[in-house]
Each structure stands twice: as C-alpha cells, then as structure tokens.
Write a protein that binds this DNA or RNA. Sequence first.
DNA 1: TATTGTTATACTCTATAACTATA
DNA 2: TATAGTTATAGAGTATAACAATA
Lengths: 144, 144
Amino acid sequence: MSAESDTYLARDLSVSAMRLNRRLRLRHVNDRIPVAQLSILTTIFREGSLTAGELAVRERIKPPSISRSSHALVEMGLLKRVPHATDRRQVVLTLTDEGRRVAGEDVAAREKVLADQLGFLTPQQRTTLAEASNILIGIVERVQ
Amino acid sequence: MSAESDTYLARDLSVSAMRLNRRLRLRHVNDRIPVAQLSILTTIFREGSLTAGELAVRERIKPPSISRSSHALVEMGLLKRVPHATDRRQVVLTLTDEGRRVAGEDVAAREKVLADQLGFLTPQQRTTLAEASNILIGIVERVQ
DNA sequence: TATTGTTATACTCTATAACTATA
DNA sequence: TATAGTTATAGAGTATAACAATA
C-alpha cells in the first residue's frame, strides 16, 4: 500500500461508514423500526435480558440514549421494563414475545437486504468484509 | 467462512459502521466542523467546484441536505456560491481560500486522528481495511 | 413542462447537564 | 455520598413535500 493511499484510508473509511450507515438506516426506516432501536432489540435477543446500564455499555452509547430508545420500544410493545430483583434503581429490559419475533425476523430480513449485495461478492471479498468488521470494532473500542 | 458467520456478517457490518460513524462524528464535532459538512468541503477540494446537484450525486444525499450544509459552510466563510455561467438555475459551489486551507488541513488532521489507531494494525490489516472500504463503496452504490 | 435548487416540516440519533430515586 | 436511570435541552443529519425560478 502506498503512502498516498495510507493518507486517504481514514477518509475513505469514514466516508464509506457514513454512507453505508445512511443506506442501512433508510432500509430500516422503511421497515418501520429505526436501526438504532433494532440494534438494541437484537442485542437483547442475542445476549438475553440486560439492565439499561449494561445495554449502554454494549451499545457504546450514553444512558439517555438507551432511555429514549427503550421507551420507544416499550411503546411499540417490543420491550418490557421489569424491576430488578434486588436493586430498585435498576431496570431490566426484556423482550416481549412480539419483540422476540421481530428480533428473530430481523436477522433474516437483514440477511435478505444484504444478501443480494453480498451475492455480487467473491468469497474472498466476503472474508475481507468480515475481517474488516472485526478490525473496525477494535478501532472503535480504542477511540474514546 | 461458516454459514453462521455469513448470517451475521450483515449485522456486524451495520453495527460497526454505525459505531465508527458515531466516533468519527464526535471527533469532528470537537473540531468545530460537522463531519458531513467536512465531507462536502473535501469533496470539492478533491474534485473542484461543483453545482449543488452534482454534489448531491457525489455525496449520495438529497438536494435539501446539500442546501442546508452548504449554507452553513458559506456562513463559516469556507464556501462561495457562484452563479453558473450559462444556467441561472444552478449554483456553483467553490471553496474560499480559507475553505481550501481547512480542507487541506483536514486530510492531515484525519490522518492524525486515526493514525494512532492504524498504528495498532499490521500492514495486512490496513490492506484489509482499504479493500473493505472499496467493497463497501461498491455495495452502497448498488443499494438504492 | 422539466429541471434546479430552496424552504418548510418532521424524525432519528446522539450528547451534556441537571435531576430523582435508591443504595 | 455514590450509582442507576430519566428528563430537559441542544444540535447534526437526513428525508419528503411543496414551492420558486429558470430552461
């Protein structure tokens, strides 16, 4: 890789992240559930019930954002707010049956949305994306 | 790559794009120019003066977003709005001297912001990111 | 009529600061 | 006092719809 392409790697990454993000958000808006809220839903789906604070850590956002999004999900009937067993300050966020159904469907839906696109790729390109995703996660962890 | 990891590739991609985006946006907020506006600035820096419509195509956003962001940049003294030579409906967006300076500096600044993070990576990982960025751009082009 | 761009409006997502309730 | 979470407030970024000016 040349020094010149190194220079633009950061820009290319941020631009492609921004644009991909925009596209995916729009897809989900069409599907009636905003992408950040869907992320919360599927995180709980995968990891099980979590308190608001634990969720904030996993989603890497601040508690107020969790608060807003989780209330929206409760209003949609996808999430329940359960009192914590021993600490009444905490709130345990749990999927409703409908929430579990939606979260489960979303995996398939997302697969479908991107499947067409991934279909254009070679296996090697898919591997590249999977590796890149892991690298990006690591970078995000360190940029604080 | 297993079928299972295939299933989650789309989710991993969208999550890492969202989080990276968030981090980069916050970095730029600290630097006083919002990232989307900076993207406009550097696009014109790289490609030369563009009309609002041309810019909307390149940035993959709708004209109203260009309108808002470009006016903000004009207010900051970074962008000029020049009447089109032959078509008075169109507006040509051109960098001011200050805009050119800021855009130029941004390449270095962005390099500095991510340089620390890229420094943790192996040359092979950087290559992976560069390739992934190109693949993602291609995907974004097709998701319409 | 068609194209270019702006204005009006609305929504998502996020943050920081200030607050409440509980530990 | 410290912690968990909410409310209040602000700002970025985006879209669609309706509009004005020009071709």
